[in-house]
């Protein structure tokens, strides 16, 4: 996609705050995949005051559960899953220092408020473009909850993962704007 902002991990707070809903961004660096079951477990750890499975500082959680990797490949197809299912858990994780989330679809009012309060950002990726997105993943390894299979937490090294700012640090929402601009 044209005219993209390039963003590398570790993300700097000042750069996250400059982003606006609708901006197109390429993400490079180390991010972590986690979805429903891993989120439930992380919140259970948080409730017990246990450390998180990885350092949230400067990185992102990518809501995704990949296909198995073929021999010689780092990962199988891996696109975003629906973020709304993580809404219940996200404010707890944002409280713990998570600032960047990647997924697809709308978030709850509570998540948006947490994003604004902590200067975070929520990116949307293209749902279903999973074979293409796997090409952006250079390496992958399971770092927690291996028993969850595809739902385990994986450390992913990505190169130019294409995303769009869906909710910025001011709380502006790309999906709402898109409807307002395109509804006939």
């Amino acid at each position: 996609m044209s005219e993209r902002i390039k963003l590398e991990t570790p993300f700097q707070d000042s750069r996250l705050k400059e982003l606006n809903a609708g901006d197109m961004v390429y993400i490079s660096g180390t991010i972590f995949s986690a979805r429903d079951a891993a989120h439930k477990k992380m919140c259970e750890l948080a409730a017990d005051n246990q450390p998180m499975p990885f350092d949230f500082n400067g990185t992102a959680v990518y809501y995704a559960g990949p296909c198995p990797a073929k021999p010689g490949e780092p990962i199988g197809s891996v696109g975003p899953t629906t973020s709304g299912r993580m809404d219940l858990y996200s404010p707890t994780l944002i409280q713990k220092g998570l600032k960047v989330m990647i997924g697809k679809g709308l978030r709850s009012k509570e998540v948006t408020e947490s994003i604004v309060e902590h200067g975070g950002v929520y990116f949307a990726a293209i749902g279903g473009a999973a074979a293409l997105m796997a090409k952006c993943v250079k390496s992958a390894k399971v770092i927690a909850f291996e028993e969850l299979g595809t739902e385990a937490i994986r450390e992913l090294v990505v190169e130019e993962l294409p995303v769009i700012v869906a909710i910025d640090s001011k709380g502006d929402n790309m999906y709402q704007k898109a409807i307002e601009q395109n509804r006939e």
């Binding site: 296909c67 696109g79 293209i126 279903g128 074979a131 293409l132 090409k135």
Partner: peptide, 24 residues
């Protein structure tokens, strides 16, 4: 652009016999 990207994704999937979407 998204529609073109989806076509590209489908072409890669077919060529490499990789799943179109990770949610199989």
């Amino acid at each position: 652009e998204i529609l073109t990207t989806l076509s590209k994704n489908a072409e890669i999937a077919k060529r490499e016999m990789s799943p179109i979407c990770q949610d199989t």
